[in-house]
Design a protein around this nucleic acid. Structure first.
Lengths: 193, 193
DNA sequence: CAAAAAAATTGATGTAGGTTAAATAATTCA
DNA sequence: TGAATTATTTAACCTACATCAATTTTTTTG
């Protein structure tokens, strides 16, 4: 049950069994059915979540009610409204299950307990935030300089596993284009090959 | 000479004179003439910089050689290639002076010294990263959902001090539009009023 | 200060991707 | 399973913004 998260943590830090057991003792299991929400924008985001199986999307809705997807998380990914989680302010994102999903979540307080007992976990968390920061940076750069087609190609090259798994309309929203445009881009790409 | 940075730090944490003096002892002064660079993409980014006077821009150049501005920093702002600074990897951004600029910079190692001696400075740094994270988020959301005109209006409302100070072509680059488009947007806006 | 360089404006024209609407195709669920 | 819902595709048309090119304004610098 904690195999995946164990391997995940080991990618960041060198934790022994005792340390890891203390960490897992703080985890809460949660099952989300498709369309159920892990976090709702405007509410308090107390948890950081690890996806054990399934898939989530983090999105915001603008004034016209259009949803913009910021991030997907499949198995072995961490997700949260990092802003709300860190500051205690209301969450900016809503995080919703695209498939039936099992997550392990840990509260801010529990994470602090872990940090206090085993400071090496601070490093794990710092790396998590850094990686999130870099991802945001890459998205901005891509949104400023790439065409819709290029963005889709990038997705193909760097996150192909998302393409086969996630509904097109969500991929389109993630790329910042309409579902119709994405459909045309695909058609054009396959004609070429 | 350290007044501005002192006030800045006090906004984040409650440091006394002794603590602050230790911090300032680690700072290095640096003067940049207009167009000189603080950090060059691809090089090692060892420092975090505080702008005492003047103005900087952080940008990346895409494959076509087009520059995309990610961030401006005027007096009382912190700036760095946070990714390179945190990870030790080559910097993603180039940071260049738009005006003659005085900065105070601190190295990663010195900052670690400060953290070790006075852990309350960790909080200051964490808040800095959080704020940067939120800024990146806002930019993505705006780039996904706002028209060029809306983006300019947002700039007007939230960072008017930039508009009067920064050359239009840089503002345009920051907004992700061409200088020509920005010129037309301004014309249209002033006709309305 | 005047010449040169850089930045901003303006107009004409092009185009990527949006919008609307209708037709299929795939999923859901009773 | 089969009706109903939801997603995807396709086509016709539209628009926001880009590109190109010429002019004017501002800034830089010898």
């Amino acid at each position: 049950m904690h195999e995946l998260i164990h391997k995940n943590i080991l990618k960041y830090i060198d934790a022994n069994d005792e340390e890891f057991l203390f960490f897992t003792s703080k985890l809460e299991k949660l099952h989300l059915k498709k369309k159920e929400k892990l976090i709702v924008a405007g509410e308090n985001c107390k948890h950081l979540a690890f996806v054990n199986s399934g898939c989530l999307r983090a999105f915001i809705s603008d004034e016209q009610g259009t949803e913009h997807i910021i991030q997907f998380a499949v198995e072995n990914y961490w997700i949260s409204d990092l802003y709300g989680f860190l500051t205690g302010n209301p969450a900016i994102y809503t995080i919703e299950a695209i498939e039936n999903t099992d997550v392990l979540k840990i509260s801010r307080d529990s994470l602090e307990d872990v940090f206090r007992r085993y400071p090496k976990f601070e490093r794990f968390f710092r790396l998590l935030i850094e990686r999130s920061h870099v991802n945001l940076q890459q998205r901005i750069i891509s949104s400023l300089s790439d065409s819709a087609e290029k963005k889709y190609l990038n997705l193909f090259e760097k996150q192909a596993f998302l393409i086969s798994r996630i509904p097109q309309k969500y991929l389109a929203s993630y790329l910042g284009i309409t579902a119709e445009s994405l459909s045309r881009i695909k058609k054009k790409m396959f004609k070429k090959e």
